[in-house]
Write a protein that binds this DNA or RNA. Structure first.
Lengths: 214, 214
DNA sequence: GTCTATAAACAGATAGAC
DNA sequence: GTCTATCTGTTTATAGAC
């Protein structure tokens, strides 16, 4: 019987270090020496495990994509919802979980800024993020949205509204120093996170309502 | 009588190059040689005009802050609006102008990604962005929002709702490659920009309506 | 103000011992 | 798998001519 492993695998430690340092200082702003030091290993192990610094970057992208995918799946019912109310409830649960992770979890800061950097770097990561991450999840929410409003899942307004929701959530993470300061908050703890979630869900309900009627 | 100057000042060219290259490749990802080449000058002039690469970065932050401030001022009425309808109209005009600039203008991509990077880099830029840029503009919109809804300008829900609006707009710029692909759009031209603006303004109206009634 | 040439530090990758 | 030492190229900053 093994206890909780005390010594994490070197490759996992490197991915962890990559997420933190790439997120905080950017890919080019982070040296392989820093990465190795954070992961308590040596520079050569980056090339050994990932073929080089660029390989570690790609592994970090995949790591975040897998994490978010798992989170959203955990909030999905095993069966597609039967009623409009059930569909709306599931969207709201997903949004709540996403806000708690993205806005409320301190570790999410590095992950989110890392992924946004990858997005704006216009490298191959965009294709990975789109194909294996954004497109399937976005489509799934479109289906729920259609169920909740009676609209077509591929309706332009539906697709756009979901992007707007994602944008709100990500901004509350990225601009957190600005938001907290303006709100007079001492950082964003569980209480503040709930208030952000309440706002996003209220906006969500308004949009769903609008989509049902016009 | 002088005609339109054909030869831009070296320092202005360097700021232009900084916005483009820092935005696309990040601060550390951009070399002083690239900056000088883009500005049609030599590396030494960066130190001469800005004291070094870091000084050019700070000058770029200030340059963007001034541009956006000017844009929002241009959409402001000389007199504070007298009625709730006038206040709402002015918010809508501002949002429209912001979407057209941020989402619809190709040059905005570099500026927005540059500023977002500065925000997440946790450097001194955050203080500058907050104090000279975000806080006064946010406060001004809060005042309009209060006029439009009858709420207090410092109401927590008001302040948060405005951040959510900004988040939507910025996301449609940053995630433009993902959005265009999912929408089946061939990039985001004037027509697509208008549809994004329509969505953001519809969301804005819903939120204002909600704030008036509860 | 502009530019070339160079200095001093640092980068990522890798050879080879263990 | 892990690690040290080193190779090769590139970085920013700057000295000094014009």
């Amino acid at each position: 019987m093994t206890t909780t492993p005390q010594k994490p695998k070197t490759d996992a430690s490197l991915i962890q270090a990559g997420l933190q340092l790439f997120g905080r200082k950017g890919f080019e702003g982070t040296s392989t020496r820093e990465l190795a030091a954070h992961a308590n290993t040596n520079v050569a192990s980056i090339a050994y495990h990932f073929g080089g610094k660029a390989g570690l970057r790609a592994a970090c992208v995949k790591s975040v994509a897998d994490l978010i995918a798992g989170l959203l799946d955990a909030e999905s019912a095993p069966q597609p919802p039967a009623t409009a109310e059930a569909a709306q409830n599931q969207i709201e649960r997903m949004v709540g979980a996403l806000v708690r992770l993205v806005v409320g979890t301190p570790q999410a800061q590095d992950m989110v800024t890392f992924m946004l950097r990858e997005l704006t770097d216009q490298g191959d990561a965009v294709d990975v993020i789109y194909a294996e991450f954004l497109e399937p999840r976005h489509r799934a929410i479109c289906d729920l949205w259609a169920k909740a409003t009676g609209r077509d899942p591929e309706d332009e307004a539906v697709k756009l509204a979901i992007f707007a929701m994602i944008g709100q959530i990500l901004y509350f993470r990225v601009a957190q120093p600005l938001v907290a300061r303006r709100m007079g908050w001492d950082g964003i703890g569980p209480d503040e996170t709930r208030r952000v979630a309440d706002l996003v869900i209220a906006n969500l309900r308004d949009t769903l309502e609008r989509h049902r009627h016009d």
